[in-house]
């Protein structure tokens, strides 16, 4: 790194860091606002609320039926993680290990759902799901969420599988392993860290997936984020603190998994598959 010592470059450096600090401060303040409000007795026209209480949590939990919502959320997420894991890992294995005609087209099919925003394809998809009678149902929500989840697993797993030397598998064959033994004794242990990381990322993304769930869910198949949207949408009806309680519950649910995921992956991977089109 070249260290410039001129005044101009010092000013520039300070300005750049100032922008970062302002951004992070605003972000943290925004999160703090939600948390503090959910715990406040009354907060109007002052820097801090008049007093603190936890009773909104009990109120909101009952009013919004959060137990049911959480159960539905984890059922949806669980189903999406398991199905996308099974479909995605096998497809990634084929794409990583074989070169076949049409491979580029297949890769493009997996890439598109990640590039097109959910709302763009969500509207025709939800229309179709309603036409075939799956709209508003649990199955419909899971199917909709598979669209971004499966390609995500595929694209995270391809580079991971590619870096496992195929000769390891060949060696296992030479030593007499059957296909099943090869899978259980050799492939599974090698793939496990990558699979875990990919599935945790899918989990976080599915908990936070608003658009597709919003378009396809009915009253009994809402996930937490959709319930939160409706609560904010109808915010005049209830005390603002109750909506913020729900926001905190949602935040905690997401962050627990996020922190867990961050033990295995680089934060950048949550946003983008690191350096897909970057160098090399």
């Amino acid at each position: 790194m070249i260290r410039d010592t001129g005044i101009g470059s010092k000013l520039w450096r300070t300005a750049v860091w100032a922008v970062v600090v302002v951004f992070v401060l605003n972000l943290l303040a925004l999160i703090a606002t939600v948390v503090i409000d959910s715990l406040s007795t009354r907060w109007l026209g002052t820097w801090l609320p008049a007093g603190f209480t936890a009773h909104w949590y009990a109120d909101a939990w009952d009013e919004f039926g959060l137990t049911d919502v959480l159960v539905v959320t984890f059922q949806v997420v669980g189903a999406v993680v398991l199905i996308s894991g099974a479909l995605g890992v096998t497809a990634a294995y084929a794409l990583a290990r074989r070169d076949f005609p049409g491979k580029r087209a297949a890769t493009l099919v997996f890439l598109l759902p990640l590039l097109v925003p959910p709302l763009t394809y969500g509207i025709p998809m939800a229309t179709l799901l309603y036409r075939v009678g799956l709209g508003g149902s649990f199955a419909g929500v899971v199917l909709a969420n598979l669209v971004p989840a499966v390609p995500f697993v595929v694209l995270v797993m391809i580079p991971f599988i590619e870096q496992i030397d195929p000769r390891v598998e060949a060696a296992a064959r030479v030593f007499g392993a059957s296909t099943w033994q090869l899978f259980i004794r050799v492939l599974l242990p090698l793939l496990l860290p990558g699979v875990l990381a990919a599935l945790l990322l899918v989990l976080v993304r599915t908990v936070a997936m608003f658009e597709l769930t919003f378009l396809t869910s009915g009253p009994t198949s809402q996930t937490l984020v959709v319930a939160l949207y409706y609560a904010v949408f109808a915010s005049g009806v209830r005390a603002g603190q109750e909506v913020d309680v729900m926001a905190v519950v949602y935040m905690v649910t997401t962050l627990v998994w996020l922190l867990l995921a961050l033990r295995f992956v680089n934060p950048t991977q949550i946003v983008a598959r690191a350096k897909t089109q970057g160098a090399h």
């Binding site: 479909l87 995605g88 096998t90 497809a91 294995y93 084929a94 794409l95 290990r97 074989r98 070169d99 076949f100 005609p101 491979k103 297949a106 099919v109 997996f110 598109l112 759902p113 394809y121 509207i123 025709p124 998809m125 229309t127 179709l128 199917l143 909709a144 598979l146 669209v147 499966v150 390609p151 595929v154």
Partner: peptide, 29 residues
């Protein structure tokens, strides 16, 4: 040409995306 049992593993995921993404898109159009 690179097509064997292993290659076929790509089929289920591909079918899922075609059914849930490509087809709805065409349907919408």
């Amino acid at each position: 040409r690179g097509i064997d049992g292993t290659t076929m593993l790509v089929v289920p995921a591909l079918l899922a995306i075609v059914a849930l993404f490509v087809y709805p898109f065409v349907y919408g159009l």
